[in-house]
């Protein structure tokens, strides 16, 4: 059950501080269990190095935000986790990236199986040109699981979309608004019940109201799933995440800590500059 954390810090940015309190207050406090871990992870696109020696431990049932300026490798890191990078011919990965202590780049790991454990929501809403129902059941069906109406309802409720679409399950997913489409994509991702959900700037194309709905949703999702979210929006990271990783240009992970520490007392000067808006 959520326990109230006592406020100790005095921050100059009132807005961010309140947001952090909100996030911390609703999260249950328990010892962190690492679910994803990168050790000395290098990623290359041909000759270009996109990630440099990244070390990170992502805790279970927490929201981990990954922030940083454009081109810093944050999306690359996300795509490494579920091996969507396999689809890019020139991409090469070195080092270790473990999911529950198993290196996902081991010979015997099947990326198809991996992606059934680790779902993803993309930057641009990408519902399939199918009905809402078929969008939700697609994942279950390709994974060989039977999809019942209950599954559809559960996933759509989980994505806070059920009430809006329950009467139009057979209409096309493309008929929904942008925010609804993105929540449909979240429903699609959680329908097969993965363990981790990766989100790649899921609100960047949405209006503020639709974005805040997704943020509220992430807050609920973390009860059942581990969420790793890439965002370019620092307020968003501060509002919704427990842990924050800051990548800076060149693919370096320069800071990774509890969100509150990162935003209020960053160790690295460059991170402070970035967060206070001096660049990026």
């Amino acid at each position: 059950m959520p326990t109230q954390e006592t406020e100790t810090q005095q921050a100059d940015d009132q807005l961010i501080t309140t947001d952090i309190q909100h996030a911390e207050s609703t999260r249950r406090e328990q010892p962190d269990q690492t679910v994803l871990e990168a050790r000395d992870l290098d990623v290359f696109y041909g000759e270009d190095q996109a990630l440099r020696s990244v070390d990170i431990e992502i805790p279970e049932h927490k929201v981990t935000a990954i922030i940083g300026p454009s081109g810093c490798g944050k999306s690359t890191f996300l795509r490494c986790i579920n091996r969507m990078n396999d689809m890019i011919d020139v991409c090469r990965v070195q080092g270790e990236l473990t999911f529950r202590s198993k290196n996902v780049y081991d010979e015997d790991v099947d990326p198809v199986a991996l992606r059934r454990k680790i779902g993803q929501v993309f930057q641009k809403p990408n519902p399939f040109p199918k009905s809402i129902r078929d969008n939700v059941t697609y994942g279950l069906e390709v994974q060989g699981k039977s999809a019942t109406d209950d599954d559809v309802e559960r996933a759509l409720r989980g994505a806070a979309l059920w009430d809006e679409v329950k009467d139009q399950l057979d209409s096309s997913g493309l008929d929904l608004s942008g925010g609804q489409q993105q929540r449909l994509c979240i429903a699609r991702a959680i329908a097969p019940d993965p363990e981790v959900i990766l989100m790649d700037e899921p609100t960047s194309g949405l209006d503020p109201v639709a974005a805040s709905k997704i943020e509220d949703l992430i807050d609920e999702l973390v009860e059942d799933y581990t969420v790793v979210i890439v965002t370019h929006n620092m307020q968003q990271a501060a509002r919704i995440s427990d842990k924050t990783a800051v990548f800076l240009t060149g693919g370096n992970l320069v800071e990774f800590d509890d969100t509150a520490s990162v935003f209020e007392d960053p160790e690295d000067d460059r991170v402070e500059d970035y967060i206070t808006g001096k660049f990026g």
């Binding site: 269990q33 690492t34 679910v35 871990e37 431990e57 999911f99 529950r100 202590s101 198993k102 290196n103 081991d106 790991v109 099947d110 199986a113 991996l114 059934r116 454990k117 994974q143």
Partner: peptide, 18 residues
Amino acid sequence: STETETGVEDGNTLFSDI
């Protein structure tokens, strides 16, 4: 870091349900 004894699944059985 994950302790091997506390990990519910280890590497070999991780994807055995699939």
